Simulated scan of single mutants.
Amino acid sequence: INGIIKGEYLDCYEVNSIQEANELLSHVVNLYNQERPHMSIGNKTPEEIHQTNQKTDRLWKNYYAKNRTLVNL
């Protein structure tokens, strides 16, 4: 979600203060959850899914290995 928010929204705006950044991020998160349809949940918004308690199938890929080990540097 962080990559989507940065790539689709935050990279397009210039902010000059922490307050502006907080306001923009709040607006973007609301837009992402309430207005932007998601292909991975049948082109519905997350808010629609949560309000109706719909069960969804996982349609996205997990790019992270299941058994990752941390390497000490």
Rank of each mutant, 00 (worst) to 15 (best):
S26L: 07
I1P: 08
N16D: 09
I1M: 12
A65G: 05
L70M: 12
N2P: 07
Y9G: 11
E35V: 09
T69W: 04
H27W: 00
K61R: 02
S26T: 00
I4D: 15
N67E: 13
A65E: 12
N72D: 13
N62S: 03
L59F: 02
K66P: 13
S26Q: 08
Q34P: 04
R36D: 05
K44M: 04
I1F: 12
E8R: 15
Y63T: 05
G3E: 15
I18S: 13
H50Q: 13
A21E: 07
E8K: 12
R68K: 07
L25H: 10
T52N: 10
E14P: 07
R58L: 07
E48K: 05
I18N: 14
L70D: 05
A65W: 13
P37L: 05
L59G: 11
R36L: 14
R58A: 08
Y9S: 03
N16S: 06
N43W: 09
D11E: 15
Y9I: 05
E23M: 06
Y32P: 06
S17D: 06
P46R: 07
I4H: 14
N2Q: 14
V71S: 01
L24N: 06
E14S: 12
I1W: 13
G42E: 09
P37E: 03
Q54W: 00
T56P: 02
Y32N: 03
T69L: 02
I49Q: 02
E35Y: 02
I5N: 07
E35F: 04
N43M: 09
N2M: 11
P46I: 05
H38R: 00
G42M: 01
M39L: 15
I49T: 01
T69Y: 09
Y32W: 02
A21H: 11
E35T: 10
E8I: 09
N33I: 06
Y64D: 02
N53M: 08
G7W: 14
S40P: 08
N33F: 06
R36K: 09
L25C: 03
V71P: 02
N72G: 05
L73C: 14
N2R: 11
N43L: 13
Y9K: 04
T45C: 06
R58W: 10
L73V: 11
R58P: 00
A65Q: 14
N16Y: 10
W60D: 08
P46W: 03
L24K: 08
L73W: 15
E8M: 14
N62A: 07
E8L: 14
L73A: 14
Y63K: 01
M39D: 12
L10I: 12
V71Y: 03
T52R: 06
I41Q: 05
I41R: 04
R58C: 11
K6T: 09
